Computed example of a mutant assay.
Amino acid sequence: MMNWIALEDINQLEQIKTSSTPSIIFKHSTRCPVSGMAKRNFQLEAPLLPEEVDVYYLDLIKYRDISSHIAEHWNIRHESPQVLLIQNGQCSYHASHSDIELAELVKNISVTSG
């Protein structure tokens, strides 16, 4: 089961940028059937995720300003649906639309065991 963290405040981006563990941001439009399908597929692959990775869910209809800030900060064009992997303050992987595959994203996660 996917452990979504609602991304509803721009200040949460500071936590994501400074976190020592990887974070995933899933940008989702509740009005788009392609986005709905991508979200369902993403959730089906949830067991592939290392448990220490935080997974944020951004509702683009309610929080478009946060999505714009993400696009500006990491210099990645806004798309929906879209997934970003943030590690050490950098976006190390992103995909949009039908290219969103959690199995592919997981290959890019760097988890340091301590």
Rank of each mutant, 00 (worst) to 15 (best):
S113F: 11
E45D: 15
W74A: 04
T21Q: 12
Y56E: 03
H78A: 09
S23K: 10
I70P: 10
P81C: 14
L84V: 05
E104K: 01
S110G: 03
S29K: 04
S20Y: 05
W4D: 00
N41R: 14
F26E: 04
S23H: 12
M37K: 12
A46W: 02
M37C: 01
L102S: 00
I5A: 00
D99F: 11
K27D: 09
Y93G: 00
I70F: 12
R31L: 13
L48A: 06
S20R: 11
V53D: 01
R64N: 09
S23D: 10
D65Y: 12
L102P: 03
H94S: 14
H94E: 10
N3H: 11
V34G: 03
C91W: 01
A6T: 12
P81K: 13
Q90L: 14
P50I: 01
S68D: 15
I109A: 02
V83K: 06
T18H: 13
G36T: 12
K27Y: 11
V34L: 13
S20V: 03
S35M: 09
G36F: 01
S35F: 06
W74F: 15
S80N: 09
P50M: 00
V106F: 07
V83H: 06
D9E: 14
Y63Q: 10
E101Q: 14
S35W: 09
I24G: 05
K62R: 15
L84G: 03
R77T: 12
N88A: 15
Q43S: 14
K107E: 13
P50C: 01
P33R: 02
Y57C: 05
N41D: 12
I100V: 09
K39V: 08
L7V: 09
A6N: 11
L58K: 14
L49A: 03
N75H: 12
D99R: 15
I66D: 08
A71L: 06
K27I: 13
H94F: 13
S23R: 04
H69G: 00
R64V: 02
H97M: 03
K39A: 14
I24H: 05
Q43E: 15
L105A: 02
L84C: 05
N88S: 14
S29C: 01
I76A: 11
S68L: 10
T21C: 00
T112R: 13
K27H: 05
K107N: 10
Y57M: 09
F26C: 07
E8I: 15
I16W: 08
V111H: 02
E104Y: 01
Q12H: 07
M1I: 05
P22Q: 02
A6F: 05
S92K: 14
